[in-house]
Each structure stands twice: as structure tokens, then as C-alpha cells.
């Protein structure tokens, strides 16, 4: 433990370690992937068990399942329009996967897979590939007109086209770094203040009294992190919807 050695080690929580013994080690199955599997299982269970009653007047779990469905559905249809309905399952999967990743990471001893830039960039890359493929298949070569807006003076083309291309290519980067940075910052803060609690608590008689301060900060931080967890999942989903809108409508 970091606290026992008297130093603050906020980053070891992000270390990948194989699970499931030698089999897991052989296939590179880390605790990050185990949490992904847990999240996927919980999402599926929420929908499947929640909707198993198929009640006209929903119970608690069914209300939760329906609320998440309608929340994402309204988000996608509101941003993309009626054409967006076929992307709804993708955005729903993305939103729930990120949301459950963020939320599961707040439990003690849990791992936050959305705090890995490789994971968030992997998800952003899926989005990037999807919007590019959708735009190309819907608009063909007209898609490249996206990089030069109609009506702009032709002599501005050498400036506008590189800017537009860079802004298009930076989408997955900003999408992934936003989520990654938020999660890492939150968990580092939690870890640092938790370490303070332990370090200050060991300071003799007044220790427990002083340690209340970082503890209360941590309690507030957990509430804040719940908000951030939801907000970042929402931002990820709504930015994906906005990119899909651009891909479907080109501007």
C-alpha cells in the first residue's frame, strides 16, 4: 500500500494485471476486460430482466430500462432526425458501455476501463470509422465536398481544406481524450485525498480530527464523480450523434 510507505501513489490503480490465472494471462485478459465483461453483462441483464415482465405499467427495473432506452432514443432522433433510428442501437451500446464503465469504476477495488486512453480511443475510432463509412456510402464522392463549404471563395481553399481535414481527424482524438482525462483526473483526486486520510490519520492524537477534512472532500468528490460519470457518457453519446448527423446530412 502506498500509504504504508508514506508516499502518494495515485497511478498504480491504472496498472493492468491479468486475471483468471494462467488462462487469462495466456490470452491477455486483464482486470480491465473483466470489468468490460461485467458491464456488458449488467447492461444486458438490465434490459433482458427489466423487460421480461413486458408489463404495460412498468415496475422499477423495467422503468429504468425503458428510461435509458427513451433517453438515448430521444437523444439520437433529436440530433440525427428520423434517419438516425438505425444508429440508435449503436449509440445506445456506446452510451451504456461508457456509463457503466464510469459508474463501475467508482466502486472500491473496481477498475475504470474508461480511464485508459487506449480504450477510449478504441471507442472513438469505432465512431470515426462508422461516421466516415456512413458518409461515404450515403454521399459517395460528394462527401469530400464536406471539407470545402459551398460558397467559400476559391482562393481560400488552400487554407480551408487543411483546416477542415485536421478538424475532422481531430474528432476521435478530442472525443477519446475528453473521457480519458476526466476519468483519470477524478480517480487520481480520489486516490490522493484517500491517501491523505490515511497519512493524516496516523499523526498521533489530533490525526483523526484532521483526517476528517480530506475525508469530507472525498465524500463530496464521489458525488461529483457520479455526476461526471453520467455527464461524460452523455457527452460521448451526444457528440457521436452530432457526428452522425454530419455524416447523414453533410452540414
Amino acid at each position: 500500500m502506498a500509504a504504508e510507505t508514506g508516499t502518494i501513489d495515485a497511478l498504480s490503480q491504472f496498472q493492468l494485471t491479468p486475471v483468471l490465472g494462467p488462462v487469462g494471462a495466456a490470452v491477455g485478459f486483464s482486470q480491465s476486460n473483466a470489468h468490460m465483461l461485467l458491464a456488458a453483462g449488467l447492461i444486458t441483464a438490465l434490459i433482458m430482466f427489466g423487460m421480461s415482465a413486458r408489463a404495460v405499467v412498468p415496475g422499477r427495473l423495467q422503468s429504468l430500462a425503458e428510461a435509458s432506452y427513451e433517453f438515448v432514443h430521444d437523444l439520437v432522433v433529436g440530433q440525427v432526425g428520423d434517419e438516425g433510428k438505425r444508429f440508435f442501437p449503436f449509440v445506445f451500446t456506446l452510451f451504456m458501455f461508457v456509463l457503466f464503465g464510469n459508474m463501475l469504476g467508482l466502486f472500491p477495488y473496481a477498475f475504470t476501463y474508461t480511464s485508459h486512453i487506449a480504450v477510449t480511443f478504441g471507442l472513438a475510432a469505432i465512431v470515426f470509422v462508422l461516421i466516415t463509412v456512413v458518409a461515404l456510402s450515403l454521399h459517395g464522392r460528394k462527401f469530400f465536398g464536406y471539407f470545402f463549404p459551398e460558397g467559400a471563395p476559391l482562393w481560400l481553399a488552400p487554407i480551408i481544406i487543411p483546416v477542415e481535414i485536421v478538424s475532422y481527424l481531430s474528432r476521435p482524438v478530442s472525443l477519446s481524450i475528453r473521457l480519458f482525462a476526466n476519468m483519470v483526473a477524478g480517480h487520481v483526486m480520489l486516490k490522493v485525498f484517500a491517501t491523505f486520510v490515511v497519512l493524516l490519520g496516523g499523526l498521533g492524537a489530533i490525526g483523526p480530527l484532521v483526517a476528517v477534512l480530506p475525508l469530507s472532500v472525498n465524500i463530496a468528490l464521489v458525488g461529483f464523480e457520479v455526476l461526471v460519470a453520467f455527464l461524460q457518457a452523455y457527452v460521448f453519446a451526444i457528440l457521436t450523434s452530432i457526428y452522425l448527423h454530419d455524416a447523414v446530412h453533410l452540414h
Binding site: 490470452v27 480491465s32 476486460n33 468490460m36
Partner: peptide, 16 residues
């Protein structure tokens, strides 16, 4: 483990 994590991510996300 980093590469494996991404591969498993793609598999789990795809199945989900």
C-alpha cells in the same frame, strides 16, 4: 496487455 485489452474491448463491445 495493452493490445490484448483493445482486442478484448472490440470483442466485448461487438458482442454487446
Amino acid at each position: 496487455l495493452m493490445i490484448a485489452q483493445i482486442v478484448w474491448l472490440l470483442i466485448i463491445f461487438g458482442v454487446l
